[in-house]
Simulated assay, not measured.
Amino acid sequence: MDGPSYRSPVPTTIPLFPLGTVLMPGSSLPLHIFEPRYRQLTVDLVTGAVPGKQFGVVAVREGWTPDADGLAGLHGVGCTAELLDVRRLPDGRYDIVTRGVQRFRLLELDDATKPYLMGTVEYLPDDEPSHAELTPALSAAARAAHRRYCATAWKNGEWSEPGGDVDPHLLPHVLAADCLLPITDRQRLLEQTCPTERLRLVRALLARETGLLSQLRAVPAPMTSFAVEHSSN
């Protein structure tokens, strides 16, 4: 998981899956795979042609596409996804379940080597925490903001509080996972490498969204069962 590691990043090459959403470490992401190149990626993950059953998820910039705009069409930081479960449908499509593992910075794109995009990335560790002694208080404040958001946004039984054993470095990503934050906010959380600042940020974002929901007397629309890849067939 994306925890307290301070090693220098080393570039590596991984398959990429551009999406209209932001995956964060520790978060679950179900996907409905229908485009041929990503069907092939799924096969390569299952058969071991892609080692470790992991690929990179990176958010597409609004109004851009990686096919037309290349590297400029994607946000610069993404997250690896670990394949957890696969269900093949009769027509050759797949429903898969993944979990976010580790952040990376996207350096280069390769659209020629494989049917799907490949990317040269460097993994993005956390910085050494500033004011680490504040971590317990900041964690408690972030959890409280999450409870207030969920009590406002969801019905009883539609959400649960993360366990007390969740690492504080990972906690902001887990708290944000079941909250409907805008993509820009989710990307800010993903890119924040200071653990204490990340706790502050998620608390502030959830408090803001709770206030907006309360003022509008509205609740978010339900999430769809499966996300789909950004690019069309």
Rank of each mutant, 00 (worst) to 15 (best):
T42K: 05
R103K: 12
R148P: 00
Q40L: 13
L109R: 14
R99S: 07
V174M: 04
Q54M: 06
A145F: 05
P30W: 03
T113W: 13
P36F: 02
G163W: 08
V46M: 04
S139V: 05
H32F: 14
L206A: 02
L41Q: 08
P222V: 03
T13R: 15
T135C: 03
L107A: 09
W154S: 11
R87E: 12
E197R: 15
L71Y: 09
R37N: 02
E82A: 11
L45G: 00
V10G: 02
L170T: 03
C179E: 00
G3T: 09
L124H: 08
V121A: 08
A221G: 09
D69T: 12
G70N: 12
T152M: 09
L170N: 01
Y149M: 04
G157K: 08
V166I: 14
D111R: 15
Q215M: 07
R61M: 09
L45W: 05
D126W: 05
R186D: 01
R200H: 11
G100C: 00
A207N: 06
E197G: 02
A227M: 10
V219C: 10
V57D: 01
V43I: 08
V77Y: 12
L205D: 06
R88G: 00
D165Y: 04
G92V: 00
M1L: 13
S28L: 12
G56C: 05
A177H: 10
C150A: 15
T184R: 15
G211A: 04
L199N: 05
H173L: 01
Q215R: 09
R87L: 11
P162Y: 10
A81D: 01
L189F: 15
R88Y: 03
L83V: 06
F55P: 07
E82K: 11
E122R: 13
T65G: 15
L213R: 08
Q40T: 04
A176G: 09
T196V: 06
A140H: 08
H131P: 04
E209C: 00
P9C: 07
E35L: 01
C150L: 07
P30F: 05
V174P: 14
L41T: 07
A137K: 06
S27C: 15
G3D: 07
D67T: 04
R188T: 15
R99G: 02
G48L: 01
T98H: 06
S214K: 12
R198W: 11
L109D: 12
G48F: 07
V60H: 15
S214F: 00
V58K: 03
R217A: 10
A218E: 11
G63Y: 13
A112T: 15
A151R: 15
P136G: 06
P4Q: 06
A137H: 14
F17W: 11
D126S: 08
P4T: 00
Q215L: 10
N233I: 02
P182S: 03
C79K: 06
W159S: 03
V219W: 07
V101Q: 13
V202W: 11
P25R: 12
F104D: 05
P18W: 02
D178H: 14
N233T: 06
D91H: 07
L138T: 03
F104R: 03
S232T: 08
D69A: 13
E133C: 03
V10Q: 11
D110V: 13
A145R: 06
L124P: 15
L89T: 01
P66D: 05
